[in-house]
Structures are given as C-alpha cells and as structure tokens.
Nucleic acid binder design. Structure first.
Length: 842
RNA sequence: GCCGGGAUGGCGGAAUUGGCAGACGCGUUGGACUUAGGAUCCAAUGCCCAAAAGGCGUGCAGGUUCAAGUCCUGUUCCCGGCACCA
C-alpha cells in the first residue's frame, strides 16, 4: 500500500507548559472548596467511592498516587454520569512512627504528624485529586478519637471488650513493650540488637471478634464484588474447622480432665499418646514437682518462640518430653502417655491433641522419632469388593477408608464414624461436636503514647470502672516526654494518670494503654458521612443514605486485618442499632504494588520515585496518566523513567492538536451532517465512537485503564494523521469536545484547560459523559484473513455486510490462496462471517 | 506443604466470548528540521533468511480442534498470602 506523504506537524509553536496550566487550575480549584462537595440531599443516585486513608508518614509515594489516581478517575467518571458522589479523604494519624520521630527528630508526635498531614494534603491538591475536604477526618483529633472511646464503652457494656493476660514483647534494656515489627533478627530488640526480647504476661484489653466468627465467614459469600483472592485470605484467616472435643482423664486420684480437639475422632482408637503445648496450663502443674521437666519445658518454649519470631515455625525439628504421666482414652479406657511437644500450639483448639501416628503426618514424624507406638485403625476402601485390602503406606491420612480395631465402631466409614462417635461422646458426657477457629480475639492494648486512650479507670475500691460517657473524651495530654524506655510516657503525667472514681469518689488511676490504630480505621468511613457531629459518631440516617461504600480501593496488604476489623465493627454497630447494613463495603478493588527495577520501592534500595519530582518534571497529569497506563491497576506496576517521557509526549501532542486551530474550533457550533462526511472523516467519527465505547466499558468492567489511555492515544493518532480533520471544522470541534470528556477522569488539569479553549463555560466535572452510537462505531469494511490449512495466506477487504457466499467466492478467487491450494482438493470450507476463512485441503 | 496470581518481542504491556499474536507506549535504527539537539516530526522495528518466497514463534511436553496465548492433561520457574491450625 503506497504511503502518503505526511505533512510535518506544526508543534513547535505550541509547546505545552504543564506547570503554567496546572498551577492555574490548582488556584482556581483551591478557591472553590464546594467543587467536589457531596450533596446532602439529592435526586441523583448516590455513589460512595473511597480510597484507603494514608498514614501521614511525611510524603506521598507512588503507590499512593496510583491508588488515588484510580479512585479519582472513578469519582470523576461517576460525577460525569450524573451521580451524587462522595469522595472523601483523611488521615490515619495515630501510630508508632510519630513517637520514633519524637526521639530522632526531637519533634512532639502531634506536631510531627500535623506537619506531615499539611505536606501530604498539599501534594494531593497539587495532584488534582477531587476530594471533599469539608469532610476530612484526622484520627488523632479528640473530635474523632472520642468516638473510639465511646465505641469502646459500648463494647464493654455488651461484654465484647474484656481484659485478660496476654504475652507482649518486652525489651529489658528499653524496659518497655515492643511492637512485633520492633523485634528483629529472630528475637532481638531493634534498638539493642544484642538484647533478646522477652515475653511478658500483661493484662491487656481484647475485643471479642470471635463473637462474629461465623457471620464474618458466612457473609463473605455475600460479597461478590470483592476479589476472590481477598475472600479466600479472609476465609483462611478465620479458619473454621469442624471437629470433636474429647476429654481424656489424667491418670491420677483427682483425675483432672484434658480436653483435646480433633477433626478426626474416627481415628481415636489409634491414639497412642496425648500431646500438650508447652504453655498448656496442666504443664505447670505437672512440672511443679519436677524441676527437670520444668527445665525441659522451658527449653521447648524458647525454641517455639524463636522459631515463631524467625517466621519458620513450620520448619523446626519436632521435640518433645515424656511427662511420665498417663491419660485415659474415654472410648476404650486405654492409658496412653502424656507428652509435651514443641509443635503443639497453645493458641489453637485446646492446646492439647490426641496423637494418632498412623493417620497424621506430624504425629507420625513425632512417634517415629521417639519410638511411640503406631496403630493402624483405618484401612483404605478397596475399589472393588473382591480386591484384598493391603496395608496402606503410613501415615494414611485420607478420609476414604473403613475403621478397624475400633471396637463397636469398626466397619464404619470415616464419615459415618465421625458422626456416630461424636454422638457417643455427647451421650456419655465426655465430649461433643464443636467448631474451632483460627481467628482470635483482637488485642487492642498498646503500651504507647500516640494513640487513643482506653477510657477505663482502676479504683482501689471499685476495681475496673469505665469512664462515664459524659466525661469523654479522655484527652491525650500533649506535654509528655517520649523516651521509648520504661513503659508508657503517660505514666509520667500525673494530671492524666490520677483521677477520681466516678462511683466512690475515691482516688483512681487511669488506664495508660492506648488503642491499636486499627480501631481508628475500622469505622472512619462512617464518620465521613457526618464528619462534624459532636453528639454522636454519626447520624444513622445519613449513614443509611451513603452506605454501603460502593467502591473501596486500596492495597492488598490490608486484605485481612483492616478489612476484617472493619467488617467486625460494622456488625457490632448494626447490633447496637447504629447502622442497618451488614457489611461496610460492596465492591473492593485491590491495586498492585509499584515496583522499580524488579523490587518494591524502598529507601534502602535507592529506587524510590518521588511524586514531587514527577510533578515538577512532568506535571501531575503525566504522573497520573502514567500510573494508569503502565500496567492494569490490579497488577504490579513496573515504574520506568522512560515510560513517563512517552506520556509527557502524548500530553504535548494532545495540547498541540487542540491549539493548532483553536480559534476555529471555539467558534464552530460542532454541527455536521453525517451524510456529507468524506470516507476519511467518517472513519474518524467511527474511531471516536469506538473509543467512547472502549473507555466506557473499561470503567464498567475490568478497570483496565491502561487500555483506556491507549485508546485515547489511538484516537489522537488518527485525528492527527494526514491532517484528516483539516477540512471539517464542525466535525473537528465535535471530536475534540468528546476527546476532552474522555480525558477528564485521567488528566483533569489538561482536560479543564482544553475545555476552556473550546469555549466551554460549564463545569467539566459535571458535563455529561459522552454516549456512543453503535451504528457509528460499526466498521463499514472488514479485513478478512484467508487461511489454507490454518495458515494465513492473504487478507481481503470486504464490505461489513458481505454474505458468506460472497466472502467464499472472493477467497477462492484469490491468487495467493489459489497458489496454496495447488492441485489439492478442498475438503472443508470454514467461513466465519466477519472473522475469517479457512480452507482445508488435502 | 496448602491457597491465589503470573510467565507473550530488547522493555512495560494488548488480544473479556477459541478466529490476522504483539494494540498502545518505551527503546533501537534510518531520515527530516536545525548552529546544535538529549526538543519536535516522518518511517522501519517479533525471530530466522542478503531479499523475496517461505519458515518459526505466547515458560516447557503432550492433547482436543478446520483453528489454541485462550480449552484439557502433565510439568518447570517467578510473585503474593497462609503455614506443625490437630
């Protein structure tokens, strides 16, 4: 095909000055805070789009930019589609880094935090994100955290907040509690790398998340708008497992009970020992009179803890100690030895198991090592009744078998046996069917300063007393000395610590623990709907209007904790009549990480790309466009410095295309008659409608905005190639107008600027999203590939309405096709209308 | 070990339903304009072959089909999550 001579594009005169343009719109938007405000009441349908609120660490990183670029594009798209959009932003502003900064930079946590917020907020504004700042939520403000305290009191009232002893990481040199992330190198203090962290038992506050275990699991089925990956992760995290609780009796005069949990009660006749976790309460009793045992157990505990901290508990060598005592199997009265083993977890089930080496891999390993008896009680079911049953290879762990050597239960299948044997246990009163969960109650106590004070008092006379609701908020004092040693800094603030008991009026001491910051983020999105309410956390009617969140967007790293806690909180609020929805989030989108040079961006690797630098070098639009263009949003994005150059070029070419003749475009009314268009002009119009279709469908479907941006590039390429639109001012204007509308969600600064150059005085943000005409989008001619024996031999162009017969005729007449058929016979002719022709020859 | 996700040119990625593999962008090469170009524009660009003709190509090995990146069986590697959960 002959290549047409292309006129060089006149672009030199109209270079796009992203800075000038973006600063101009930045100023204008700043002067009108109502621009992005959600309407309190509206006849429009509502849409609540939310991105996860950031921790104000100092500055935005590219992961934030990507997250917010996705959400902002959606918000703008929904505005243009006539929705009443709620698109808020806030700050997850309590947390440990502020205290660290207090030490290293000698800035009070509050000041450091607020400074960071100011900086990051400015960055967000400079990037052009359309947030309703009138609803900004800052979790470290008393106006917000007083409601954390209020919720805590409600939870306490309902018995869902309680105190129990629990282990914490304790550094003897710091004389303080460490967060998990401060325990490094498999058990050492982050500040004293030669000091082993100890485990100390402290009284801590817990929230009864397990109260909702079943509902949290069940309702995952009602969240089809969540990624399957996240639902699976939550399912595993909750870890529901049906089984049987069986009580063995200690072989002693008092006959203390040892409850074990098993999912395979059908194998209990094969139990040849009982295994206890090293931290099992019975262990201390057994060891009390046995110093040697005590020492051995302590050794096991240390091993287990080290392995856990090093993250390889599944890898450690199994160790155990025989206590010399026995437990009685209630099914057959048999006495089996009691062992203590490092692979038994106190945190799951009852912390004790029956060990059946023949039918459990772990028990098998352990029994082999210590010479414990192995007794086969399940035989595989033969495929055919004639077949003789051979002894299976051990351990034989499948459920597809028949019980043997199991007394009255012999001959049953595993499934039947589990039913019957559980019923038997219940009848005899030594056991029952039960469900175990991996999910634990949520420990919210933090021995930290920078967090929400837990609103509880300790009175010498009345014990634990909740702060009366009317005395909220319990204000976190500002004047404290952060040392990171010697416990909570709040202990050093007498005016905080010392108070009076609301019951007896006597002296009382305040709780100095503060709340886990996951509390803050468990309900913040409700506060956005009614951010300034000082009588309640929010107004229920307002929440009922906005909830559930239509679209939540954030990193997959929050798939478990944040999102389970949020679901828990919602269910609790529903149960106390505060909200009506069972779930907070209807649709969830988890975006991929931003990586560079094959690794996650990090200071230590020196591969960090700073948003500020990108904005100053290329502009906010380019940074946003590139973060959408470089990869589909759900996949990891490999940042390439040369890639954003290409985007800047695109932005410049768009601008040049509009400026080429903007006077004419501005004054045209944009009306043209389709019948009068030249074929080339019709082709552009077709491309326009195809582009509208592609971009609209990306929003409705997979969110592959990389292809949306690519579609816009293709449209621009067609518009500028061969000066195709030169002769038709009206069409040119019409195409430009729709182009701006399509560009608006992705590159708001440029789009607004171009909108203005077109002479549009209305607000682009509320301009209607363009509709496509399927007729105009339809191709008039089709390229039909011709294959012979599945191999491409030629391509012909036919009218879109060509019949099968016409296409086949053309195909058979094609010279190249003829040559490949040669003298052979055509045995099959496949004509797929609109797609291809394949001739099978022999 | 279990559960997800992935593997496509030199690179990021397209190809939602089996129907022209490589859209779009980067990079590279050649050219135009230019005092100059690391600006801008034009063109070429999966690999093999001097070129044409042709052949080969979506991690690997098979299979189904007129036709496979796409479906099936097996397998390797990479990323993420969970992990002695009884």
């Amino acid at each position: 095909m002959p290549q047409q001579e292309n006129a060089p594009r006149e672009l030199h005169d109209s270079r796009y000055d992203a800075h000038r343009v973006e600063e101009k719109w930045f100023e204008r938007w700043a002067s009108d805070p109502s621009l992005y405000a959600a309407e309190a009441t509206s006849t429009k349908p509502k849409f609540y789009v939310l991105e996860m609120l950031p921790y104000p660490s100092g500055a935005l990183h590219m992961g934030h930019v990507r997250n917010y670029a996705i959400g902002d594009a959606l918000a703008r798209y929904m505005w243009m589609n006539g929705y009443n959009v709620l698109h808020p932003m806030g700050w997850d502003s309590f947390g440990l880094p502020a205290e660290n900064a207090a030490i290293s930079a000698n800035v009070p946590p509050r000041e450091w935090t607020l400074r960071n917020i100011a900086n990051m907020k400015a960055q967000m504004k400079r990037l052009g994100f359309a947030y309703d700042w009138s609803r900004e939520v800052t979790t470290c403000f008393p106006e917000y955290y007083r409601w954390n305290q209020w919720f805590f009191l409600k939870l306490y009232e309902k018995g869902l907040a309680y105190r129990k002893k629990s282990k914490v990481n304790w550094c003897p040199k710091c004389a303080t509690v460490l967060a998990n992330e401060q325990v490094v190198n498999g058990g050492y203090c982050w500040r004293h790398e030669d000091t082993l962290v100890e485990q100390r038992e402290l009284e801590q506050w817990f929230l009864r998340t397990t109260h909702y275990s079943d509902e949290l699991l069940r309702d995952l089925e009602r969240l089809p708008g969540w990624p399957e990956k996240v639902r699976t992760m939550q399912r595993n995290w909750i870890g529901r497992s049906e089984g049987t609780l069986v009580e063995f009796r200690l072989d002693a005069a008092d006959g203390a009970k040892i409850a074990v949990f098993t999912t395979r009660v059908d194998t209990i006749f094969g139990a040849t020992s009982v295994q206890l976790a090293p931290e099992h309460p019975l262990v201390s009793e057994l060891a009390a009179s046995n110093p040697k045992l005590r020492a051995q157990v302590d050794q096991l505990i240390t091993e287990q803890r080290r392995a856990k901290e090093a993250g390889d508990i599944g890898e450690i060598e199994k160790h155990g100690v025989n206590t010399g005592r026995f437990a009685v199997n209630p099914y057959n009265g048999e006495k089996v030895p009691i062992w203590i083993a490092n692979y038994i977890l106190m945190g799951y089930g009852t912390g004790a198991i029956m060990s059946v080496p023949a039918h459990d891999e772990r028990d098998y390993d352990f029994a082999k090592k210590y010479g414990i008896a192995i007794r086969l009680v399940i035989l595989p079911r033969p495929n055919d009744p004639e077949e003789t049953v051979v002894e299976p290879a051990l351990p034989f762990t499948t459920m597809d078998g028949t019980l043997v050597n199991s007394g009255q239960f012999s001959g049953l299948s595993c499934d039947q046996a589990i039913q019957k044997m559980s019923a038997y246990a219940e009848q005899k009163g030594f056991g029952k069917r039960t469900v175990a969960y991996r999910l634990k109650d949520w420990g919210i106590s933090r021995q930290r300063y920078w967090g929400t004070p837990i609103p509880m008092l300790y009175c010498e006379r009345d014990g634990i007393v909740p702060v009366p609701e009317k005395d909220l908020p319990v204000i976190l004092p500002d004047q404290v000395k952060i040392t990171l040693t010697g416990g909570s800094p709040l202990l050093e603030v007498p005016e905080f610590l010392n108070t009076t008991c609301p019951r007896c009026g006597g002296p009382a001491r305040r709780e100095t623990d503060t709340m886990d910051t996951f509390v803050d983020s468990s309900w913040y999105f409700y506060r956005y709907t009614d951010a300034h309410n000082d009588r309640a956390p929010f107004d229920s009617k307002t929440v009922a209007y906005w909830f559930p969140i239509n679209q939540y967007i954030g990193g997959v790293e929050h798939a478990i904790l944040h999102l389970i806690y949020s679901r828990f909180w919602t269910k609790f609020m529903r149960d106390i009549g505060l909200v009506q929805n069972d779930e907070p989030v209807e649709r969830l989108f988890t975006q991929g990480m931003v990586i560079k040079d094959g690794a996650k961006m990090s200071k230590s690797l020196g591969n960090v790309v700073s948003p500020d630098e990108m904005v100053s070098k290329y502009g906010a639009d380019a940074a946003r466009l590139y973060s959408l263009f470089a990869a589909p949003p759900d996949r990891d994005l490999d940042w390439q410095d040369t890639g954003i150059e290409g985007i800047r070029r695109f932005v410049g070419r768009v601008y040049a295309f509009f400026m080429q003749d903007h006077e004419e475009s501005r004054t045209s009314d944009g009306h043209f008659v389709i019948g009068d268009l030249t074929p080339a002009e019709r082709s552009i119009l077709r491309k326009l409608h195809q582009t509208i279709r592609r971009v609209s469908e990306d929003f409705k479907g997979r969110w592959h905005f990389n292809t949306s941006v690519a579609a816009l590039m293709e449209l621009l390429n067609e518009c500028t190639a061969n000066n195709a639109l030169a002769a038709n001012t009206a069409l040119r204007r019409a195409v430009k107008k729709d182009f701006v509308l399509l560009l608006a969600p992705f590159a708001p600064f440029l789009a607004h600027e171009l909108w203005e150059t077109l002479g549009q005085n209305d607000n682009l943000l509320r301009a209607p999203w363009p509709a496509y005409d399927p007729e105009l989008a339809k191709e008039e001619e089709l390229q039909i590939p011709l294959q012979v024996n599945g191999k491409l031999r030629a391509v012909i162009t036919v009218p879109a309405n060509a019949t099968e017969e016409m296409i086949l005729e053309r195909a058979l007449g094609d010279e190249k096709v003829k040559a490949h058929i040669g003298g052979k016979t055509i045995v099959k002719r496949i004509v797929v209308p609109g797609k291809l022709v394949n001739l099978v020859v022999k």
